[in-house]
Protein backbone atom coordinates (compact mmCIF):
# COMPACT_ATOMS: atom_id res chain seq x y z
CA UNK A 1 0.00 0.00 0.00
CA UNK A 2 1.46 3.38 -0.94
CA UNK A 3 1.76 5.97 1.82
CA UNK A 4 1.02 9.67 1.43
CA UNK A 5 3.93 12.00 2.17
CA UNK A 6 4.79 15.63 1.49
CA UNK A 7 7.48 16.31 -1.06
CA UNK A 8 9.53 19.49 -0.88
CA UNK A 9 11.43 20.45 -3.98
CA UNK A 10 14.41 22.77 -3.64
CA UNK A 11 17.90 23.69 -4.58
CA UNK A 12 21.12 22.44 -3.08
CA UNK A 13 24.63 23.63 -3.59
CA UNK A 14 25.53 20.23 -5.00
CA UNK A 15 22.79 20.52 -7.54
CA UNK A 16 24.02 24.03 -8.27
CA UNK A 17 27.63 23.07 -8.82
CA UNK A 18 26.73 20.02 -10.85
CA UNK A 19 24.27 22.08 -12.89
CA UNK A 20 27.08 24.40 -13.82
CA UNK A 21 29.01 21.43 -15.01
CA UNK A 22 26.24 20.43 -17.36
CA UNK A 23 22.75 19.10 -17.14
CA UNK A 24 23.32 16.13 -19.33
CA UNK A 25 26.04 14.98 -17.01
CA UNK A 26 25.92 12.10 -14.54
CA UNK A 27 26.49 14.09 -11.39
CA UNK A 28 23.56 16.41 -11.99
CA UNK A 29 21.29 13.50 -12.83
CA UNK A 30 22.48 11.67 -9.74
CA UNK A 31 21.73 14.64 -7.49
CA UNK A 32 18.33 15.26 -9.01
CA UNK A 33 17.25 11.64 -8.81
CA UNK A 34 17.90 11.13 -5.12
CA UNK A 35 15.15 11.81 -2.64
CA UNK A 36 15.87 12.50 1.01
CA UNK A 37 13.61 10.74 3.47
CA UNK A 38 13.21 10.52 7.21
CA UNK A 39 15.17 7.52 8.53
CA UNK A 40 12.28 6.27 10.63
CA UNK A 41 9.96 6.37 7.65
CA UNK A 42 12.57 4.47 5.66
CA UNK A 43 12.93 1.84 8.31
CA UNK A 44 9.19 1.35 8.47
CA UNK A 45 8.99 0.98 4.71
CA UNK A 46 11.95 -1.38 4.71
CA UNK A 47 14.13 1.06 2.79
CA UNK A 48 17.87 1.53 3.05
CA UNK A 49 20.13 4.22 1.66
CA UNK A 50 20.16 3.68 -2.07
CA UNK A 51 16.89 1.77 -2.13
CA UNK A 52 14.45 2.77 -4.80
CA UNK A 53 11.06 4.33 -4.26
CA UNK A 54 8.32 5.32 -6.61
CA UNK A 55 6.66 8.71 -6.05
CA UNK A 56 3.32 9.37 -7.65
CA UNK A 57 1.08 12.41 -8.05
CA UNK A 58 -2.02 12.79 -10.20
CA UNK A 59 0.31 14.28 -12.81
CA UNK A 60 2.88 11.56 -13.08
CA UNK A 61 5.41 9.38 -11.32
CA UNK A 62 9.13 9.06 -10.81
CA UNK A 63 11.40 6.37 -9.46
CA UNK A 64 14.15 7.73 -7.21
CA UNK A 65 16.93 6.53 -4.97
CA UNK A 66 16.46 7.38 -1.33
CA UNK A 67 18.79 8.75 1.23
CA UNK A 68 18.08 8.90 4.96
CA UNK A 69 17.98 12.02 7.12
CA UNK A 70 17.58 12.17 10.89
CA UNK A 71 14.25 13.30 12.32
CA UNK A 72 15.66 16.54 13.68
CA UNK A 73 16.72 17.51 10.16
CA UNK A 74 13.78 16.13 8.21
CA UNK A 75 10.53 15.39 10.03
CA UNK A 76 8.63 12.20 9.41
CA UNK A 77 6.38 12.31 6.39
CA UNK A 78 8.51 14.89 4.59
CA UNK A 79 10.62 14.22 1.50
CA UNK A 80 13.20 16.49 -0.11
CA UNK A 81 14.18 16.36 -3.77
CA UNK A 82 16.48 18.69 -5.70
CA UNK A 83 14.82 20.22 -8.76
CA UNK A 84 15.45 18.42 -11.98
CA UNK A 85 13.86 16.31 -14.68
CA UNK A 86 12.36 13.87 -12.20
CA UNK A 87 10.73 16.45 -9.94
CA UNK A 88 9.15 17.85 -13.13
CA UNK A 89 7.37 14.59 -13.69
CA UNK A 90 5.41 15.07 -10.50
CA UNK A 91 4.33 18.69 -11.02
CA UNK A 92 1.00 19.84 -12.42
CA UNK A 93 0.76 22.57 -15.02
CA UNK A 94 -1.99 24.56 -13.33
CA UNK A 95 -0.64 27.75 -11.78
CA UNK A 96 -3.92 29.14 -10.45
CA UNK A 97 -3.52 32.44 -12.24
CA UNK A 98 -0.01 33.09 -10.95
CA UNK A 99 2.40 31.57 -13.45
CA UNK A 100 3.92 29.49 -10.68
CA UNK A 101 3.40 25.74 -10.59
CA UNK A 102 3.50 24.14 -7.16
CA UNK A 103 6.76 22.35 -6.57
CA UNK A 104 7.01 22.46 -2.80
CA UNK A 105 4.87 20.44 -0.45
CA UNK A 106 3.34 18.22 -3.05
CA UNK A 107 1.19 15.41 -1.77
CA UNK A 108 2.83 12.27 -3.13
CA UNK A 109 2.22 8.58 -2.87
CA UNK A 110 5.35 6.76 -1.80
CA UNK A 111 5.87 3.14 -2.67
CA UNK A 112 9.04 1.07 -2.32
CA UNK A 113 10.27 -0.44 -5.55
CA UNK A 114 11.55 -4.01 -5.13
CA UNK A 115 15.18 -4.22 -6.18
CA UNK A 116 14.58 -6.68 -8.97
CA UNK A 117 12.12 -4.28 -10.58
CA UNK A 118 14.82 -1.72 -11.25
CA UNK A 119 16.61 -1.47 -14.57
Amino acid sequence: MPEMMTLIGGRTSKQGTSLTHGKLDGEYLEVTSTVEMNVEDMARLGLKNGSRVKLRTPEGEAVLKCKGRETKDLPRGILFLAYGPLSSQLMAGDTAGTGMPISKNLDVEVEPVPDQAGP
Binding site: E59, S88, Q89, M91, G93, P101
Partner: peptide, 26 residues
Protein backbone atom coordinates in the same frame (compact mmCIF):
# COMPACT_ATOMS: atom_id res chain seq x y z
CA UNK B 1 4.10 27.35 -17.75
CA UNK B 2 0.49 28.21 -18.51
CA UNK B 3 0.99 29.11 -22.15
CA UNK B 4 2.79 25.81 -22.69
CA UNK B 5 0.67 23.57 -20.48
CA UNK B 6 -2.49 24.87 -22.14
CA UNK B 7 -0.92 24.41 -25.55
CA UNK B 8 -1.38 28.06 -26.56
CA UNK B 9 2.09 28.75 -28.00
CA UNK B 10 2.96 27.74 -31.54
CA UNK B 11 6.68 28.52 -31.28
CA UNK B 12 9.13 29.19 -28.49
CA UNK B 13 12.40 31.06 -28.16
CA UNK B 14 14.27 30.04 -25.02
CA UNK B 15 17.21 32.13 -23.90
CA UNK B 16 19.64 30.88 -21.27
CA UNK B 17 17.19 28.63 -19.54
CA UNK B 18 16.29 24.98 -19.44
CA UNK B 19 12.56 24.58 -18.96
CA UNK B 20 12.69 20.98 -20.18
CA UNK B 21 14.50 20.06 -16.99
CA UNK B 22 12.34 21.79 -14.44
CA UNK B 23 8.92 22.68 -15.83
CA UNK B 24 5.86 20.61 -15.04
CA UNK B 25 5.35 17.67 -17.30
CA UNK B 26 2.43 19.06 -19.39
Amino acid sequence: VDVLARGDADAALIIASDPASNFPKP
